[in-house]
């Protein structure tokens, strides 16, 4: 049953979401709801299942058990492209671009997907000025406008990360999923991305999920933190409270040491 889109109802909900790879349970019975206008940080040690959880949400993987709902609609059976068309957008942890296409083309393909123009066979792509202008706008926002004609493969790592974010922006989703957006970026590049995430958050109606390792980033951006550990959701709450909780000190920050 589809519920009305309002602030009280979650945008996205996972219900007992699990995935098993052979004997290994990578995500175990994770139930969580995400509300519009909030930024939730997902933290946990390496191998905790954060990216796998993301893959289950955005449709790259199918769960062994459990359901994913978007605005109350069960989307568990939908493939990634269909989820994207319903308003989910994802930036990947490992840079994932179209290497031989130009920077502009990378973004323009996302704009074109959002405009639903993929099956247009008989017009020249370059004649769709409005799509190109929008793509340029997103490049401008991530400060890549001057590299628009370079092939994506020729960009420095930090710039590729920015392009990754520009592609996500170009999809204009309701639900943004960032998987360690600043990983591997130099110190002076990080603020550009954080500023963008701030801007999206300040729009007020967007829902943001953020996987992030840097605690200062999480502290400055998140309204809420959930902690995954060995595939299970072990803590959920306000940032200060979660960071201070013993389970996080132990599981994530490793201050108590390993067994």
């Amino acid at each position: 049953m589809s519920e009305p889109r309002s602030a009280e109802h979650p945008v996205l909900q996972t219900h007992g979401l699990s995935i098993r790879f052979g004997g290994h349970v990578a995500v175990n019975q994770v139930s969580c709801a995400f509300h519009p206008g909030t930024l939730t940080a997902i933290v946990g040690p390496n191998g905790a299942g954060k990216t796998t959880y993301f893959n289950l949400i955005s449709g790259q993987l199918r769960p062994s058990a459990g359901r994913v709902t978007l605005y109350g609609e069960d989307i568990t059976a939908l493939a990634a492209p269909q989820r994207t068309r319903r308003g989910m957008g994802r930036a990947f942890q490992l840079t994932n671009l179209f290497p031989q296409l130009s920077v502009l083309e990378n973004v323009r393909l996302a704009v074109q997907s959002h405009a639903g123009m993929g099956m247009n066979l008989f017009s020249v792509w370059a004649s769709h000025v409005e799509l190109i202008e929008r793509a340029e706008h997103y490049l401008y926002r991530v400060k890549l406008a001057d590299r628009r004609d370079a092939p994506a493969a020729a960009l420095a790592h930090g710039d590729q990360r920015k392009l990754e974010v520009a592609i996500l922006l170009a999809l204009d989703p309701d639900l943004f999923m960032f998987d360690e957006p600043t990983a591997g970026m130099s110190v002076d590049e990080v603020p550009v991305i954080l500023e963008l995430i701030h801007e999206i958050k300040n729009q007020g109606d967007k829902t943001i999920l953020l996987v992030e390792h840097k605690m200062d980033v999480v502290r400055s951006l998140a309204d809420r933190i959930i902690v995954l550990h060995q595939g299970e959701l072990v803590a959920d709450g306000e940032p200060a409270q979660v960071i201070a909780s013993p389970i996080v000190q132990q599981a994530y920050l490793g201050l108590v040491g390993h067994e």
């Binding site: 296409l101 996302a110 999809l171």
Partner: peptide, 28 residues
């Protein structure tokens, strides 16, 4: 020549380059 330079043609190139990502931005 028109087809390969159309919006559709660009999607084909995107799929050739990285079909995983093409799917993720909404192209089946």
């Amino acid at each position: 020549l028109r087809v390969v330079n159309s919006p559709f043609g660009r999607v084909l190139q995107a799929i050739r380059e990285n079909d995983f990502r093409a799917e993720a931005i909404g192209y089946r």
